[in-house]
Design a protein around this nucleic acid. Structure first.
Lengths: 179, 179
DNA sequence: TATTTATATATCATCATGATATATATCTTG
DNA sequence: CAAGATATATATCATGATGATATATAAATA
């Protein structure tokens, strides 16, 4: 699934500017998709060119003007078709796990810090879901709740695994170092 | 962390051709990093150009010749430096979760299939780790074992969540459809 | 015998990333 | 109160990753 399709998804929840779409990615979608301005603005420009969205320049008081995008019927049809055609892949790209696999090339202190950083990131993510932002104001559907629950369960399992095995792992690394 | 750095990591475990490096990505690293030929070959070419690896063309009987890469001391130093400088990020890109969030735009049958596909992918991943390939022949270090255990715990939690809440979720979607 | 799978490398258009630039206004902190 | 940080808003660009395609051979399978 590309950023263009996901922008259509955000627009299916209501009209929005590029900046507002980015906030949805950052807040509601952050547990399963990352996208920045560099992807979103070109995507919106092409959706407009293809007739899947229309763009209206809105003047604001005490704020810069914004370009608000609105999804067309063709856009909605394209989004439904894209969903029906999407395989439910689930990919992880984890520098955390790379550091673990090559832990023997780091000092035990560096590995300890790595584990602590991952733990505090997980805790921040869990807090984000618990606060309700993981769903977003915009999407309080059954599907969004199920997705948030899934993300929560997965994060919690990772946290518990690290907490349970961290000390044993670090001791082993420290002993190997002495040899 | 880019593909170039991870290729250095694979070479730190022993000399290898591009094709063999790809197999390591596919087998040992598949739970946290995806990379194909299109990324690996250019990365190896640049590592050679930078003096971090040397390349030797090896003729084989009944097989095409291969370019075997060997890490230099400068390459090892660069790899250690890159590890020390890497934040332990952990990013998910999940079309599965996108489909969940927009489940109201699919039929309940499509959502059911989506959940089944994810479950069988998770089961395949768990079996891969249980078989020992998740660590790879090459890396049977403490770090690789810890990483494999982490991946296993996270996958299992996802599987259990889906199994536990799947039926309730699908019933709700079916009831909403009747309205 | 025919097809698929495995070994092996290379290239390329398309897409995503992350940084940088620009401009203004509000909020916070010392 | 002034300085700096944060929030609103968009655009661009070099670099890097993706996924597909091309090419060639041999072994395994049907």
């Amino acid at each position: 699934m590309d950023v263009k399709t996901l922008c259509l998804g955000v627009l299916s929840m209501g009209d929005a500017s590029g900046y507002e779409i980015r906030k949805v990615f950052d807040e509601a979608f952050s547990h399963f998709y990352v996208a920045g301005f560099g992807s979103i603005y070109p995507a919106l420009a092409e959706l407009t060119r293809e007739g899947y969205a229309t763009c209206k320049n809105i003047e604001q008081e005490k704020r810069p003007a914004k370009n608000v995008y609105h999804m067309t019927d063709a856009g909605m049809a394209a989004f439904r078709a894209a969903l029906a055609d999407t395989y439910p892949s689930h990919k992880v790209r984890s520098d955390f796990m790379v550091l673990l696999v090559f832990a023997h090339l780091l000092t035990p202190a560096q590995v300890r810090l790595t584990l602590q950083q991952r733990l505090s990131d997980i805790e921040a993510n869990l807090a984000h879901i618990d606060s309700g932002l993981g769903c977003g104001d915009s999407c309080h559907t059954e599907g969004a709740k199920f997705a948030a629950g899934f993300a929560h369960a997965v994060l919690l399992a990772g946290k518990e695994y690290i907490e349970q095995y961290k000390d044993g792992f670090l001791s082993t690394l420290e002993n190997k170092e002495k040899e």
